[in-house]
């Protein structure tokens, strides 16, 4: 029986299923896999072949198979370790914003998280998902079972965006909760105090996680294209402001740009992958762009 979910898009999955998300740092896994393991000296036993994907290490190419079939296959061994991908999704009120109907940042974040989950699961790594606002709202423990994706999607479907955000505190909480080193993917607009955000990332980094930060933005939030007399109503109980946007656009963009630069610079300092994604961009394209850069 096919399970339907708005976050399971076969077309997107088809476009991303050959992609591989590798742990860039050394990760601790229960099995030996394609990721660099902190555990050395394990015997290597061939398990299966896997079709080559761009970015794979050429050392593991099976040249014999290539000679017979002209196709690239990698030899996979039981000794390859796996990683746990922790995907943390911000579903605070601010993520509910979308300049177009049905294209909110929250929905985009969920789709991105589900797609990344699929990507991780299909490479036999474990994935855990945490949904947070100013607290952890939902947590799906790690699993490598492909059916785990449905559980994740179910959580997304049942969790609307609500409440305020407190990113610094919540990242600190995750840092204390995720003891095993792995890949931590944070999907948020990061609209919080920059220092608190960076300090939260610092907590995670301190635990030697491989951190990836996806900043989800709506195009309007960046370009601020409004004209006329607008009454802006804060989505996280931040009050109401009446203004003529064109009169303050310059300042807004400057402040917004300064924040984004600060976030990016802070991430770079901490060796955190930072990727700004606009909701107008297809999810698979965003992932491909990131993975290409990550390699």
């Amino acid at each position: 029986m096919a399970i339907r979910s708005p976050y399971i898009d076969p077309e997107i999955y088809n476009r991303v299923h050959k992609m591989v998300l590798r742990a860039r740092a050394i990760v601790e896994g229960t099995i030996v896999g394609q990721h660099r393991s902190p555990y050395h000296g394990f015997s290597v036993e061939f398990r299966q072949h896997r079709e080559y994907a761009p970015g794979d290490d050429l050392r593991y190419l099976d040249w014999k198979v290539f000679g017979r079939s002209d196709r690239f296959f990698l030899k996979q061994y039981e000794q390859e370790t796996n990683f746990i991908g922790h995907i943390l999704v911000d579903l605070s009120e601010s993520m509910r914003y979308g300049s177009k109907p049905n294209q909110t940042k929250a929905e985009y974040a969920k789709l991105l998280a589900a797609t990344l989950s699929y990507l991780i699961l299909q490479q036999r790594d474990a994935v855990a998902v945490g949904v947070f606002t100013d607290r952890v709202v939902q947590y799906v423990p790690p699993s490598t079972n492909p059916a785990h994706l449905y559980r994740i999607c179910h959580v997304f479907e049942s969790t609307p965006a609500a409440e305020k955000t407190d990113l610094g505190a919540i990242l600190g909480e995750f840092a204390s909760r995720l003891r095993r080193r792995g890949v931590v993917i944070i999907i948020s607009d990061f609209f919080d105090d920059l220092d608190r955000v960076l300090s939260g990332l610092q907590y995670l980094k301190f635990n030697r996680h491989d951190l990836i930060a996806f900043q989800i933005l709506d195009e309007f939030e960046r370009s601020f294209p409004f004209r006329g007399l607008i009454r802006f109503e804060g989505m996280e109980d931040e009050g109401i402001f009446r203004t003529q946007p064109e009169r303050i656009r310059h300042s807004y963009q400057e402040l917004f740009g300064r924040f984004a630069e600060g976030l990016k610079a802070g991430c770079e300092r901490m060796d955190v992958d930072f990727q700004q994604v606009l909701t107008a961009r297809p999810v698979d394209a965003a992932i491909r762009e990131y993975l290409a850069r990550r390699r």
Binding site: E93, S94, M95, R96, Y97, K105, D189, F191, D218, E221, F226, G228, L229, I230, R231, F232, E233, G234, M235, E236, E238, G239, F241, R242, T243, I248, S251, Y252, L255, F256, F259
Partner: peptide, 16 residues
């Protein structure tokens, strides 16, 4: 004034 729900209020507030 046309009402618009807005997320990036911190930048807007500061710009105003």
């Amino acid at each position: 004034y046309r009402p618009v729900p807005w997320a990036a209020m911190r930048f807007l507030r500061e710009a105003i």
